[in-house]
Design a protein around this nucleic acid. Sequence first.
DNA 1: CGTTGAATTAAACATCGTTTAATTTTCGAA
DNA 2: TTCGAAAATTAAACGATGTTTAATTCAACG
Lengths: 233, 233
Amino acid sequence: MRRLITSAAQRLFLTEGYESTTIRRIAEAIEYTPGAIYSYFKDKDAILYALHQQGFIELERRLLTTLTPGQRALVQLRELGQAFLAFSRDNPEMYHLMFVAHATSRALHAADEWPEGKRVYDALRGLVVRAIAEGEIRPGDPEVIAFGLWAIAHGAATLEICDRCIVVPDARRATIAAEAFQYLLGTMSCESASPLGQRLPTAESDAGTEARAGVGAALPSTNPDGDLDVAEP
Amino acid sequence: MRRLITSAAQRLFLTEGYESTTIRRIAEAIEYTPGAIYSYFKDKDAILYALHQQGFIELERRLLTTLTPGQRALVQLRELGQAFLAFSRDNPEMYHLMFVAHATSRALHAADEWPEGKRVYDALRGLVVRAIAEGEIRPGDPEVIAFGLWAIAHGAATLEICDRCIVVPDARRATIAAEAFQYLLGTMSCESASPLGQRLPTAESDAGTEARAGVGAALPSTNPDGDLDVAEP
DNA sequence: CGTTGAATTAAACATCGTTTAATTTTCGAA
DNA sequence: TTCGAAAATTAAACGATGTTTAATTCAACG
């Protein structure tokens, strides 16, 4: 029954947007009465929070399935960032709910209240440690580096979602987020001593695609129609 | 009269928070009737948007007054980032309204609808161009570098504001945002070829303070009580 | 069949943003 | 000074929201 509610809420949320996702409309969608919902969720924030959790599980799935297992840590870091940006672009409303909406951060005050986030972040930090150990990015505090990478991806994603990219020229707008992540990851890699510090060597790259321009276009969109394929029984 | 309304709205906004800032409460604060406000603002979003504009003017003021005029571009970039993070920390609710609230980005669709933001961003890009010309950061696309720096600062700020830093250990939490910005600015500087690429030489630095730890503590908080000192006639 | 407990509803409450018609206030011209 | 038009302000209502409560329906079991 909770599933029924959250999946209806999610459908409404992704199709009609944030404002139209009201308790009454959810109830109408599942052919129940508004009051009935309060037997299964304390209040509206609880529903949003459940959505928020499902979103993070889906994000985690997408991030982890993107990683090519045997690959070098630096390459996996790049894949992680690209997948993160792709997710935010495919599901902007969901991303907003998950990361910046006031409704959800209200019920969030300790790390164990956000296990989904902590798992992904720990994986990121582990990857950073490995990248340093493999001598692919210059040594430094893994905590700072991991947080920095997260901040870049999250910052670029939210700037895009909140229509803040209107200050960059039209021609660059679509790709600037991925380019910025790519550039910054490049500068911290060990090859960055070369004057043009943005060519990041990978196993499958160098197939004729120029490094910078290739990033935006190569963004994998596993889910092009923008739906979240989670918990729709 | 518009001033009266916005300043009351701002006071309510900063003291009582987002949820409590209702038209009726604003009217009550200025001893008017709710309907009267609609003679001066089209709707509630218009009030939030006016606040949003004032916030950007204040942010711009704080950023520009922080820059030490004759200083090298790289140092000014660092000052810019620190001032930006300090602002977001001093005025979290305001920052949320200005950058990520759905209400404000609704009325924002072209660059000329956001002149305050464009001005600051152009200044940032100019600084990047200068830093490259002065040979202080490695050459690259100024647009990408400027956007990247903005993404870092904005990402770190929003992660902090939205309580996402709970995944980093308690001891590091308070300073991690500033450290990450400092680190990333360091890696793109030309001195970063050294193994520990995070010492950023400045005019007044090297006074015994260790580079990394000094950043968080040195955050200038021009406005410790968290108020915005704008438009309170 | 009757009873008990859970599920569901209908209706109300307080509050919200917004609109409309009526009222008050303002203020320059007669 | 008085009048009347224009502006400012109010009172009241509308529709919609999240939420609660008491009543009602429903399902299961002795």
